[in-house]
Simulated scan of single mutants.
Amino acid sequence: MFTGIVEEVGEIVDVVTTEDAARLRVRGPLVTSDARPGDSISVNGVCLTVVDPETGEFGVDVMGETLRRSSLAGATAGTRVNLERAVAAGDRLGGHIVQGHVDGTATVAERVEHEQWTTVRFRVESGLTRYVVEKGSIAVDGVSLTVTEVDDDSFAVGLIPTTLRETTLGERTVGSTVNLEVDVVAKYVERLVGAHTAGTSQGK
């Protein structure tokens, strides 16, 4: 589990692809300072398992399902990524509960610069906005953010200078693709309510 509070911006240094998978090598001195094989690290919001950690770098295997659902399919050497280690028991939950299970991607549709912050609107084409609510939480490229506005196919967030400076979201321009993870509670509620509604209908 993660909190959506990015610890450092790392860089992909190597990509080896196969028919339906990829092996990435990621540079991240902070997150690898205590990394061991089998540990979980969030890479742009995707929970990946550490293999072959060494000084300042670690490897990860990315299966086809993850490549299809996330922006990691387009990762190349030099791609900058948000990194976060799994939260330890007793740590502060500074953001919100983030599983690292990306639900899909979105595209930056608009950026509006204000004096002390930036509004970014994301276009979503996969129907995920039904899980998004105003003032609710969402993870964008692994960053815990608060939704300021939502409609049928898009939502907006406000980014403060710290977020713009210390995550890759400051580099995202109109047309950029980002990973999304919606609030898992919303998905459970939908499934439970749907099952209850179906059961009630069958009982009539």
Rank of each mutant, 00 (worst) to 15 (best):
V60N: 01
D61G: 15
V46K: 02
R68L: 00
G74T: 07
E54W: 11
E57T: 14
V51M: 09
R68G: 13
V43K: 02
D61T: 12
G45S: 12
P37H: 07
R69H: 11
I41K: 02
V60S: 01
D39N: 15
L48D: 07
T66I: 11
M63C: 15
I41S: 05
A75R: 05
G74M: 00
D39C: 13
R69M: 11
A35F: 06
G74I: 03
G59T: 10
V46F: 11
P53K: 01
V50H: 13
I41R: 01
L48P: 12
A73K: 08
N44V: 06
M63F: 13
G56C: 03
T49A: 00
S40A: 12
I41C: 03
F58M: 00
P53F: 05
S40P: 13
T66V: 11
G45N: 10
A75Q: 02
G64S: 01
G74A: 06
G38H: 11
T76Q: 09
F58Y: 02
V62I: 14
D61R: 03
R68Y: 00
A73G: 10
D61L: 12
A35I: 12
R68M: 01
G74V: 00
G45W: 05
G45D: 13
T55W: 09
S70C: 11
I41P: 14
G64I: 08
A75H: 04
T49W: 05
S71H: 08
G45M: 11
S42Y: 10
G78P: 06
T76I: 05
T76K: 14
V60M: 01
T55Q: 08
D39W: 08
S70R: 01
M63P: 15
A35R: 01
V43Q: 01
N44Q: 07
V50I: 06
V46H: 06
M63S: 15
P53W: 07
P37F: 01
T55S: 13
A73P: 02
T66A: 04
G38K: 05
S70W: 02
R36G: 12
V62Y: 03
E65S: 14
S71C: 10
M63D: 15
E65W: 03
R69L: 06
V51I: 15
T55L: 11
L72K: 02
V51Y: 02
R36N: 13
G38A: 08
G78R: 01
A75V: 08
R36K: 09
G74W: 00
S71F: 05
C47K: 03
F58N: 03
V60H: 00
S71V: 14
S40V: 14
N44E: 14
L72E: 15
D61Q: 07
S42P: 12
R69W: 00
V50R: 03
E65Y: 07
V46Q: 04
S42W: 11
A35G: 09
G59V: 09
S42L: 10
D61C: 08
C47Y: 10
G78F: 01
G56T: 03
G56Y: 03
V60L: 02
T66Q: 04
T76N: 03
A35V: 14
